[in-house]
């Protein structure tokens, strides 16, 4: 049933993407409540994080438990640059990406050679190290006091200050993330990455430099986490180390797995659902972590791959195209199906 539905989705994916995009653009004009818009911005920020983490864990197959560290590095970079040096957003956002990416490479170089579970622990430990540094390095991060009154971002003099403007900024960043990741995955590099995930030994014997691709993916994923961090810092105007703990990392990983490992559409679903549900369940805030736990366990029992983890849109699209024509010879799908 799910597969049939997904086949339909794939068949009309251009139309659906267009429709969703139009609706997304209309939301801030239909909804005036700043509260709802705030949730939307946070959800979009989570989408960026989850997409980048999914690239790391789902497409490359390296389980990272420390994604919040890069999120935090980006946030602190942007916050420090904009408060201490009064840098505009066209500097702070790329700087946050670069710094987070560099840290990604720095961590990746020694650790990506480690076996899977060693890597899991090391990323987790790295997240904790970063939190401790953020807490203790008073001169730079102001430790637990956090950095306050971070200015709202301005791109080349264009100030982003209302909720609606932030909404579109976040939307633009999400689209940027999707385009970059999609293009990487649809290129030669993408196939190499998938080969590394499926079987390292086989990939290596085909002449793929495993290590180089791992570093590449790790760097790109950290970059986008840093980007989300910059958005977060300049959007909320206040950051402190409590936002970048292992709990945040786990939460992101839960979103990835909920949507389905290796499935970018799933990442959207995971990020949006799990950003909105806690708001709806605000009254149940004390049970939130418990509910998360139960969701995880039940999901693993019912669908170990996540909601859309077992769905391969590319494959479904190709199969659909090659299916013998039915329904009285009416040609279908061919218009919408161009590339996958």
């Amino acid at each position: 049933m799910l597969e049939g539905f997904c086949t339909k989705l794939q068949r009309h994916h251009a139309a659906i993407t267009g429709a969703v995009l139009v609706i997304t653009c209309l939301i801030p004009f239909c909804v005036t409540s700043t509260y709802v818009l705030r949730i939307c911005v946070v959800a979009q920020m989570n989408i960026i994080l989850v997409l980048s983490l999914n690239m790391m864990t789902g497409l490359l197959g390296q389980m990272s438990f420390g994604h919040a560290a890069f999120f935090g590095i980006g946030a602190y970079t942007a916050a420090i640059l904009s408060t201490k040096l009064n840098m505009p957003a066209q500097v702070t956002f790329p700087a946050a990406m670069v710094v987070a990416g560099l840290f990604g490479i720095l961590l990746g170089l020694p650790t990506l050679k480690l076996k899977g579970y060693y890597f899991v622990i090391v990323t987790m430990v790295f997240c904790e190290i970063m939190r401790i540094v953020e807490l203790n390095w008073m001169e730079v991060t102001r430790g637990p006091l956090g950095i306050m009154t971070i200015p709202k971002p301005g791109f080349f003099g264009l100030r982003i200050s209302t909720q609606r403007e932030f909404y579109f900024l976040a939307l633009a960043l999400v689209i940027l993330t999707v385009i970059v990741i999609r293009n990487i995955m649809n290129s030669r590099i993408g196939y190499a990455i998938l080969a590394v995930r499926d079987d390292e030994v086989a990939a290596e014997s085909m002449g793929i430099n495993i290590f180089r691709y791992k570093i590449l993916v790790f760097a790109v994923a950290s970059c986008f986490a840093g980007l989300a961090g910059a958005l977060y810092a300049q959007y909320t105007g206040y950051i402190d180390p409590t936002s970048f703990t292992n709990n945040k990392s786990n939460e992101l990983l839960v979103m990835v797995i909920f949507g389905g490992l290796g499935n970018l559409v799933g990442s959207f679903i995971g990020a949006i659902t799990l950003s909105v549900i806690p708001e709806l369940l605000r009254g149940l805030a004390t049970y939130r972590q418990l509910i998360y736990g139960i969701i995880l366990v039940v999901l693993m029992m019912v669908k170990p791959d996540g909601l859309l983890g077992a769905v391969n849109f590319k494959y479904l699209g190709q199969r659909d195209k090659l299916k013998p024509l039915k329904d009285g010879g009416k040609k279908r799908g061919a218009i919408w199906w161009k590339k996958s």
């Binding site: 389980m63 899977g116 899991v120 786990n250 990983l253 797995i257 490992l261 049970y287 972590q289 418990l290 998360y292 736990g293 139960i294 969701i295 995880l296 366990v297 693993m300 029992m301 170990p304």
Partner: peptide
Amino acid sequence: KLAGLITTLGMSMIFDN
């Protein structure tokens, strides 16, 4: 294997909370 890891993570959240 990953599913097992996530399950134990979920179980630990359930126990703790």
